[in-house]
Amino acid sequence: MIKLYLILFMLIFVGCGGNSVNKPALLSSAESDVNEAMQAYSEEDWVSAQRLFNRALSQYQSLDDRLGALNSTINLVEVALARHDMMTARARLSLAENIVTIEGLDSYYPRMTLLNALLAIQQKQMTKANHLLSELLPIFNGVEMTVIPSIIQLVAISSRTTVAFEQKHNESLWTKRYRQAIKKSANKSITLDAGLLRFQAKLSLQQGGDDQAEAYLQKSLSIYKKTGSRTEIAGILFELGKLSKMQDKRARAVSYFKRSIIVYRSLGREDKVHEITKWLTEIKAAMMKQ
């Protein structure tokens, strides 16, 4: 027995003294860049995020780290979509698909499909987006679904709901399905809840429930303010402005539009600033006439 303990001690010592596997400096640098880029992405600093992901991609490529390069490329697609830079998103997505196909990384196929669908939505190709999303959606029995949805499926349902609102077809059904999916999902998140509130606000608005719609939007806005998601905050402020205009509350609408412009300007979204300014000019002109 004592001999057995002695051997055990020796093995522990050998284990302690063994050479640990150190990461190459370039790999550590790439991971550090990715971490910084993720931080920049969460802060919606798209320019920094893109620069850092690009640098990480170069480092992964120089090490021929295919998985690292694939992840960086997918991240760059996400950043390009956030910036509404569809050309870059398309190019990066092709690169990512190429790696997935050559390396046979089957687990990445759903993500590729989702990214293609999101790109199609941005390009207003709703039929294509619908077709792509149908590959990811779970089987529904009315509103209920037969499986617990994964995070990809949740996002796919959310995107499909967006398509439904764009196509003005089955909005209520998909909103209910999205609500059921969130309830059933193991991935609870307040941002998913906030997204649902936005869909419910749109639905209420279609059904003439302006006050209910505003209540949903205000609730959603408070959630996004907690998470600090500026893009969503600006979008909801814009929607609240439009709702106020519909309700003929012009001063309030002006306030919402101005607040939305400030947030969009901080994000560098000049297209949105231009769009809201038009709305603002129209209201001011109407106010001048009175």
Partner: peptide, 27 residues
């Protein structure tokens, strides 16, 4: 090595899955 030896430390190497942005619905 000692730091990575359970139960002396709870140090864990970072998972590569953290290096990927979580799926996001339409922007």
């Amino acid at each position: 090595s000692v730091q990575e030896l359970w139960p002396l430390s709870k140090k864990r190497s970072k998972s590569t899955s953290n290096q990927l942005i979580a799926p996001h619905s339409s922007y």
